[in-house]
């Protein structure tokens, strides 16, 4: 973080009013025009601008078109879906949506998911940052073993653990309970959280913590009142990773949470999709897909600024 070690290839001098001439091509796409002498806005600048806009718009289309197509298909009749995949629906069949909604209890599943993911996210962040803090800034025997145990967890294929995990849960009477699922979500989110936050805590300056300790604050208090607030950017980034991972988790609840009333959103959707596939109700299937996408997209659009600042902070470390 500290501003030492300027890259040697960079001279210090900065001149105002420097417009860059620009490479007309993207990195890695071959020919590189020479850097033009200093001066006005060059034509290369425009070329680059057009090129970059072009590429950006293209990817934007690639991202949005499949989603728009799904929305469009969800408002069509089955026949329209089959005969003209890209045609606009003759009339808007919102009844597809209500059919998908009523058949799949998406509303209930949404609440279940909010509850479980909300609690596990808090738990993950708290426990993860506690472990990471200690691992990053203290010396004690067995530290490396614990660190590797956590980090190694990132490479475990979850599917391998499913059945034994089921036993563990059963022996502890945690099957088909929200708190059981929360504990499992926390446990399986710890590796990445610890990995990420350990390196984050290492980058934080120690002077503030020292000052707090000298002032007589306990280690615990220093952690919660000094270090955690300082680590907020990192916490937000890893929190976003974890939220997305837990929100979209499918494997774990499928096996550990088979109670129909307690289903997670992903389970409900796959169930809906699978049953629509057997029943051949295509329009409702697309409607279900859209119903599943919209709330998450909506939440994202509302919070996109926070999501981005969170990531920004994470990238800054």
């Amino acid at each position: 973080m500290s501003a030492q070690a300027q890259p040697s290839e960079l001279p210090g001098a900065i001149k105002e009013d420097e417009a860059p001439g620009a490479a007309g091509k993207a990195p890695g796409t071959g020919k590189v025009p020479d850097f033009p002498p200093k001066g006005r806005i060059s034509s290369e600048g425009k070329v680059l601008n057009v090129f970059s806009h072009g590429m950006l718009v293209l990817w934007g289309l690639l991202v949005t078109l499949p989603l728009l197509w799904a929305v469009m298909s969800s408002l069509k009749t089955d026949k329209e879906i089959f005969t003209s995949p890209w045609g606009l629906p003759a009339s808007l069949h919102f009844d597809n949506w209500s059919r998908a909604w009523s058949k799949s209890n998406i509303g209930d599943f949404f609440l279940n998911t909010v509850l479980v993911v909300g609690c596990s996210l808090i738990g993950t962040m708290l426990l993860g940052s506690m472990a990471a803090y200690v691992l990053a800034r203290f010396e004690f025997p067995g530290k490396r073993i614990i660190y590797f145990m956590f980090v190694g967890g990132m490479s475990f294929p979850v599917i391998l653990a499913l059945v034994p995990l089921f036993f563990v849960m059963r022996n502890m009477s945690l099957l088909n309970t929200y708190h059981g699922l929360i504990l499992v979500y926390i446990a399986y989110s710890l590796p990445f959280t610890v990995f990420f936050l350990t390196s984050f805590f290492k980058t934080l300056p120690s002077s503030v913590a020292e000052a707090a300790l000298i002032d007589g604050a306990s280690q615990t208090r220093t952690f919660f009142q000094v270090m955690l607030p300082m680590a907020k950017p990192g916490l937000i980034s890893v929190g976003i990773f974890n939220f997305l991972g837990q929100w979209n988790q499918y494997m774990l609840p499928t096996v550990l949470n088979t109670d129909e009333d307690k289903r997670m959103l992903t389970q409900g959707l796959v169930q809906l999709a699978a049953s629509q596939q057997y029943k051949g109700d295509w329009s409702a299937l697309f409607a279900g897909l859209v119903l599943a996408m919209l709330p998450v997209l909506g939440v994202y659009i509302v919070f996109q600024r926070q999501v981005q600042t969170g990531l920004t902070a994470g990238a800054l470390k």
């Binding site: 059945v163 036993f167 059963r170 088979t258 169930q271 699978a274 057997y278």
Partner: peptide, 19 residues
Amino acid sequence: HSATQKIQTVLQPRFNGGT
């Protein structure tokens, strides 16, 4: 009563667990 398409994932652990 419960119904599923995921017979294996739902039931296999229950067989293992003896329930």
